[in-house]
Design a protein around this nucleic acid. Structure first.
Length: 887
DNA sequence: CACATCACG
DNA sequence: ACGTACGTGATGTGC
């Protein structure tokens, strides 16, 4: 006789986590919940001998239950990281044990279980449902038993309809009514206040159901009657929330749930890896008990066909080259302009190769190098942009990037990005890789291991890339991001690599000269500060500075940090009138920052080989879709203050007679907002090319253009910023240094005028709450798991992010489009001008004399035409003999 | 390695 | 009542 066991995975792992002592393995990972789960699972298998079994998991944090009631499951403590880490371990182990797992987007485990048990019921099969959640009792029936897990996970109580009647005098379905009346604090289901289990049972004996109770309130009296009447809707909603949905669209067959027996060859290594020795013994699998070193070897020894290529083996590799679809270039260090290349892993579906870098440089490997640089030879890889740069500096050209799994993973979830390859193996249930730290060591202990270990490791990486790429392509289709990936981000990654290789020329002598000027100013300021304060101390230490200002000099404490006094610029600005030293300290901070970060920092980054600065753009960091820039960051070169702005003078064209040309989008984020929000007033302002802050001031303050004074425009500008950031009265009040009430009034006035914007802000938050994510115009996606949080701070943050991300992200989409189109335009026209830098809303080029006139019109034309919106985009262009002059 | 600070959009 | 503006990276201090 068939017997199906349905396990509520989330519920059991939670119970196990809180019930078990904090076991850890030798790697320091906590494994207690997995252990508790597994002991219970083995006991079920031994005692009940199922022929079919599944573990159901919740998928996605937002379920259909949130649609009518956003507070559902609100107020829950966030899952502790020690527990969330154990989910992937459990899933991996279940797979090794041969236990099928089901999860279905936006349904909870109980709905999956409810649906399968209904189907099994209808087919007359024996079912046992395993959970710690009493709600499951509603599923009990003639053929279906509910096994309630008690006392942690150590006891099992079996309930059929008979047992439920004995214990509660209710039918299984009345369990739903019970919860509808009582509520459930852990799911944040309200129920009726003042009605607990006792009262609820009494009411149900009398009336049978929630509906019965509510219809019969006339027969009750006093407080009870009143409560039931005022909270009738709560009771009905609570009942709905407590009802397990039994119509989940399941595409699984009875065969998909088959559980035969635990297979030693997969279960053994999996349990050994978790170091569950007692369970290995219990299953007579002790042979698999291994030392961590042996385990590492085990991972290496998986059945891949890996060839460690030497000169003699090259022939075979070259013959196989047309089949090679994935690669992984192993390099060291974070900065790809300075990395050494260690070797190359290559994978075809059949076979995997490792080519040591020394061999790649040999004359015999010329065909392989050709292949690397062949844009018609498509390659998948992880962070191919980095590989391109590392190879470039070794004199090897790279082209033909077809699918970058790092980039795809970023689009699929930009906040979970920098998912290294090993994190992705977990997501896609592929064999795990040894961590790089285990292979190479960390920090000072870094060394390249022997060929066998190295080659196997790197080849396994390319094999992993191959396994992931196909799955991601499917996911990109499902999330409507294929176009974004193939037509924008992949082409952009090549363009970025070109810009980085090109670099921007920097005048070292001028920078050193500027450093001397700063040095003199710093010396003077330090001397004066020490004299005024009457003591010498480390001015760079906020701690020491705080002690001087607040303890010794007795200045008022304006703000504290979590470690002590705050001494940031905002605080010092307030203190300046009280003490002569403070203004000097502010000046010192400004100059010291310029000196350490921009003079000394940039000097270190000027390449001795090229005399240029080669930044590295990261395409997979910012959650909104923006780029970021590293080694050095060329997106935060000073501009706001004149002293700092001078730094820009050292960025010059790399060829004599050329110019630096810079073009920036004017108000791109507010234009994007005008389009997305479809706000009439905002659109009209941009269609007429008005000064947007003045226009905002006119409308908010109800005055004419002539009546707008500096202060009004400043306030309006701050409001506009606030709008883009996801406004709050508190934030605006801080920024403008005004009372919160006044800030709230500004915002209210703004929304009265710009009603489209108000509607957008409301709608986008609602959309985020129901979808769990927001998107940009090009379908770039950002998940906001905290949008339904009960915690005010978390939720508010997510709400502001929901408002800001489509705006900032669409602006990022637009300039990326412009970059791709600009690259194409330069190529097609055969221009010598080069795109060098991107600074979020600005593109910087170097341009030969004879192309200057053309570029002055071409660049803004391409930028303005990058994407058609309902308002015009505007780009302003300027040029000069260096970046400072291009203003 | 976390924190405070400050540079940019 | 709650208590923060959105997105980054580099530097220096101090545990």
């Amino acid at each position: 006789m068939d017997k199906l066991i349905l396990i509520d995975g989330n519920n059991i792992i939670y119970r196990a986590f809180f019930a078990m002592p904090p076991l850890t393995n030798t790697a320091g990972q906590q494994t207690n919940a997995v252990y508790g789960f597994t002991t219970m699972l083995l006991r079920l298998i031994e005692e009940h001998k199922p022929t079919h079994m599944i573990v159901a998991f919740d998928a996605g944090k937002v379920t259909f239950r949130h649609e009518g009631y956003q507070e559902y499951k609100g107020g829950r403590e966030k899952t502790p990281p020690e527990l969330s880490e154990q989910f992937p371990m459990l899933k991996e182990l279940l797979q090794a044990l041969g236990v099928p797992q089901f999860e279905i987007a936006s349904y909870e485990a109980d709905d999956i279980i409810g649906t399968i048990s209904r189907q099994a019921d209808e087919a007359g099969r024996q079912v046992m449902i395993v959970s710690g959640d009493k709600d499951m009792l509603q599923l009990a029936s003639e053929h279906t038993t509910v096994a309630l897990i008690r006392k942690g996970v150590s006891e099992i109580e079996l309930y059929g309809p008979q047992q439920i009647r004995e214990k509660y005098d209710l039918t299984p379905l009345q369990i739903i009514d019970l919860k509808g009346l009582m509520g459930d604090a852990s799911d944040n289901i309200p129920g009726v206040p003042g009605v607990g289990e006792k009262t609820a049972l009494k009411l149900l004996q009398q009336f049978g159901s929630v509906e019965g109770v509510l219809a019969g309130t006339d027969e009750l009296k006093g407080k009870m009657k009143e409560k039931l009447e005022t909270h009738a809707e709560d009771a009905r909603m609570s009942k709905r929330l407590a009802t397990i949905y039994r119509e989940v669209p399941l595409e699984h067959s009875w065969e998909d749930m088959t559980f035969s027996a635990i297979r030693a060859e997969t279960a053994g290594p999996a349990l050994a890896k978790l170091e569950f020795r007692s369970l290995l013994e219990r299953l007579s699998l002790s042979a698999y008990t291994q030392s961590p070193e042996a385990e590492a070897a085990q991972v290496e020894a998986a059945e891949l066909d890996i060839m460690l290529v030497d000169e003699a083996g090259l022939k075979q590799l070259l013959a196989d080259l047309p089949e090679i679809a994935a690669m992984h270039l192993e390099t060291n260090g974070d900065n790809p302009h300075r990395s050494e290349v260690i070797g190359l892993g290559l994978s075809s579906p059949e076979r995997h190769y490792f080519v040591p870098f020394a061999l790649l440089l040999q004359p015999a490997a010329e065909k392989l190098r050709k292949w690397l640089g062949d844009e018609k030879a498509p390659k998948s890889g992880y962070d191919l942009h980095r590989a391109d740069l590392a190879l470039h500096w070794q004199g090897i050209a790279f082209a033909g990037a077809a699918h970058d799994v790092q980039l795809a993973a970023y689009l699929l979830d930009p906040t979970e990005a920098n998912q290294n390859l090993n994190d992705l193996t977990t997501k896609y249930a592929l064999p795990r890789l040894s961590p790089d730290e285990d292979i190479f060591g960390k920090g000072a202990k870094y060394r390249i291991p022997e060929l066998e270990v190295l080659g196997t490791h790197v080849a396994r990486k390319s094999a992993t890339v191959l396994g992931i790429a196909a799955r991601q392509q499917q996911e990109l289709v499902e999330t409507d991001m294929t176009g974004l990936f193939k037509d924008l981000e992949m082409p952009l990654s090549r363009i970025l690599a070109d810009m980085e290789k090109q670099g921007i020329a920097a005048n070292k002598d001028d920078l050193q000269e500027l450093g001397k000027e700063f040095e003199a100013q710093i010396h003077k300021l330090v001397t004066e500060i020490y004299q005024i304060c009457g003591v010498e101390f480390n001015l760079n230490s906020p701690k020491q500075l705080g002690e001087i200002l607040f303890d010794k000099l007795g200045l008022p404490v304006v703000k504290k940090t979590k470690t002590g006094y705050s001494t940031d610029a905002e605080v010092l600005e307030k203190l300046a009138p009280y003490h002569a030293a403070v203004r000097h300290i502010l000046n010192y901070r400004t100059i010291a920052k310029l000196q350490s970060t921009y003079v000394e920092g940039l000097l270190k980054e000027i390449s001795p080989q090229t005399g240029k600065v080669h930044t590295f753009y990261r395409q997979t960091i910012a959650a909104t879709g923006r780029l970021s820039s590293q080694f050095p960051n060329l997106q935060n070169i000073p501009i706001r203050l004149e002293e700092g702005r001078k730094i820009r003078k050292i960025f010059v064209p790399s060829e004599p007679g050329w110019s630096i040309l810079a073009a920036d989008y004017s108000q791109i984020e507010l234009r994007v907002l005008a389009h997305i929000a479809d706000d009439e007033g905002l659109k009209e302002a941009f269609l007429n090319d008005m000064d947007i802050h003045t226009k905002t001031a006119m409308d908010v303050f109800g005055v004419t253009a002539e009546q707008v004074d500096g202060n009004m425009r400043r306030s309006a500008k701050a409001v506009n910023f606030g709008i883009v950031y996801g406004i709050s009265d508190y934030g605006l009040s801080q920024n403008l240094n005004i009372p919160r009430k006044e800030a709230a009034r500004f915002i209210e006035q703004y929304f009265d005028v710009f009603q489209g914007v108000r509607k957008y802000m409301d709608d986008i938050v609602t959309e985020a709450k129901s979808n769990g994510y927001v998107t940009t115009l090009l379908e770039r996606r950002r998940y906001l798991p905290e949008i339904n949080a009960k915690n005010f701070n978390l939720r508010s943050f997510a709400e502001r992010t929901a408002m800001n991300t489509p705006i900032q992200g669409t602006a990022a989409d637009i300039i990326k489009l412009a970059m791709v189109q600009m690259d194409k335009a330069l190529y097609e026209r055969g221009l010598k001008s080069r795109m060098l830098l991107q600074v979020h809303d600005e593109l910087v080029f170097e341009v030969p004399e004879d192309e200057l006139e053309l570029m002055k019109s071409l660049v803004p034309q391409v930028m303005e035409g990058a994407l058609k919106l309902s308002v015009p985009l505007k780009a302003e262009v300027s040029f000069g003999s260096n970046w400072y002059e291009a203003k």
